Computed example of a mutant assay.
Amino acid sequence: MESADRFFPLIGLARAAADARSRSFSGSLGTLTLSVKMEGGHYTFVEAHTDQVGESRLDKNVKRFFNAVHRLADPRHTIEAGY
């Protein structure tokens, strides 16, 4: 959640709501709801929902955020094309 609090204001989204395991951000790009829940072992499930359709700028930035979070957990992580 700390990473989200730093990342999303940089792209113009303001935090609209927050609790220990979720955040809501909104701005000119749209609205984003982000939540986390603990899974078995050391895994954390991070889920994001936007109010945008298709491949919006907000959706692309959410993907960038997920890659940044993955790199925090595993600095060797590299982005690979899915095609």
Rank of each mutant, 00 (worst) to 15 (best):
M1S: 11
E2Y: 05
E2H: 11
A4G: 15
R6D: 14
R6N: 11
R6S: 13
R6P: 00
R6C: 00
F7I: 08
I11H: 04
I11M: 12
G12W: 00
L13Q: 02
L13W: 05
L13S: 08
L13A: 08
A14I: 03
A14E: 13
A16I: 07
A17Q: 10
A18G: 04
F25S: 03
S26G: 10
G27W: 05
S28W: 01
S28E: 14
L29E: 06
G30Y: 04
L32M: 07
S35K: 12
S35V: 03
S35D: 08
V36E: 14
E39L: 14
E39R: 15
G41W: 02
G41R: 05
H42R: 10
Y43N: 11
Y43E: 12
T44P: 00
T44E: 10
V46K: 02
E47W: 09
E47L: 10
A48N: 01
Q52L: 05
Q52N: 15
V53H: 09
V53G: 06
G54M: 04
S56E: 01
D59S: 10
D59G: 04
K60D: 10
K63F: 09
R64V: 15
F66W: 08
F66L: 14
V69Y: 06
R71A: 14
A73V: 05
D74C: 12
D74L: 05
P75Q: 02
T78D: 03
T78F: 03
I79E: 12
A81Q: 11
A81W: 05
G82N: 11
Y83F: 11
Y83V: 07
